[in-house]
């Protein structure tokens, strides 16, 4: 085994934090505690954990709207829940919500507009290169967003200027209601990398160790100024957002969902850990219990934090950093 026991246990914890966290979001949405829409990555955790576990603390993450697994593992749980519950003690005073960002934790904001993350990430990576920093930017992107022009422009420029960035395309086969077969004529999104002069690979996104090993290599190369594209193939179990009944999926699609659920990345990883005697069922149970407790504690704490007041919301100094006179209103 390429990875130490400690690293493997850490990946188990990260996967389970992702899953238990999103299951808790489902409960909170059902009870009406969370405004807005929640785009769940249940079943896709191996992609993001493979990436996050390969990143150094000094590397930057550019998430998407479906990046809870990556984001929850980079942020502190209490402050993240404050943010999702729209509380003032959140990372962004409750103004960021699913677009949460943290300079300290090196999480950049997920734009509300698809594909925009790619050029933002390229800009950030370019600045890091100018400052001769050793950090890399990992830019997440879905199969749907990969059709955006911004992604094309970003990839071309990243390759041209040899920027420290990895484009990780999480292909979950669905862009809201549009299946992958109706999004593009290429069978593998990684093929596009060749068009920009970058290396591109397509891997099994449901195997966390495959993703980890691929990202280890891609990040190391990016650090040397060789950006690349990694397409990790997975499957979106749920609707586009929690509450979407996904009526656009026909009987064949439903079979695909069932197959994907049988091929659960966490179940697979658990079986491997047990078989290789890395963890016992009791170890796992203890980890899971601990995560659930931490999540529940974080929610209790977050609920104690106040909602932003009208004054904190309608604050032009929060919109503009400098006001040298004149009307901004």
């Amino acid at each position: 085994m390429k990875y130490s026991k400690e690293q493997l246990v850490k990946m188990y914890e990260q996967l389970q934090l992702s899953r238990i966290f999103e299951e808790k979001l489902i409960e909170l949405v059902a009870e009406g505690s969370l405004p807005g829409f929640y785009h769940l990555a249940i079943g896709q955790e191996a992609v993001q954990i493979g990436a996050v576990s390969a990143m150094d603390d000094d590397d930057y993450l550019v998430p998407t709207h479906r990046s809870h697994p990556a984001v929850v593992n980079r942020l502190e749980l209490d402050k993240f829940f404050c943010e999702l519950l729209g509380r003032y003690d959140g990372y962004n005073q409750g103004k960021g919500w699913e677009h949460v960002s943290s300079v300290e934790r090196k999480v950049l904001p997920a734009s509300g507009d698809l594909g925009v993350g790619a050029p933002l990430a390229v800009g950030y990576a370019w600045a890091l290169k100018m400052d001769k920093k050793d950090s890399v930017v990992v830019c997440l992107c879905g199969d749907g967003a990969s059709s955006e022009g911004n992604v094309h422009e970003a990839m071309n420029i990243a390759a041209l200027f040899k920027l420290p960035i990895v484009f990780l395309i999480e292909n979950n086969k669905w862009a809201i209601s549009t299946p992958f077969s109706k999004q593009t004529a290429v069978d593998k999104l990684s093929k596009r990398a060749a068009g920009y002069g970058m290396k591109g690979v397509t891997i099994d996104g449901n195997d966390v160790l495959t993703v980890r090993a691929t990202m280890d290599e891609a990040i190391a190369k990016a650090r040397k100024g060789e950006p690349s594209v990694v397409e990790a193939v997975t499957y979106r179990w749920k609707g586009h957002f929690e509450g979407d009944p996904a009526t656009y999926r026909n009987a064949d699609d439903q079979k695909e969902v069932e197959e994907a659920m049988k091929n659960c990345p966490i179940k697979k990883f658990k079986a491997m850990l047990l078989q290789e005697n890395v963890m016992t069922p009791e170890d796992m149970e203890a980890v899971d219990k601990n995560i659930l407790q931490k999540i529940e504690d974080a929610i209790v704490e977050a609920r104690k934090s106040p909602l932003p007041t009208e004054k904190q919301t309608v604050d032009y100094d929060a919109v503009y950093a400098t006001n040298l006179g004149g009307d901004l209103v």
Binding site: L108, P119, A121, G149, E153
Partner: peptide, 13 residues
């Protein structure tokens, strides 16, 4: 489009 967003990313950095 890409360049203007790249400028945004650089500025955030």
């Amino acid at each position: 489009s890409g360049l203007a967003n790249i400028a945004n990313g650089m500025a955030m950095a």
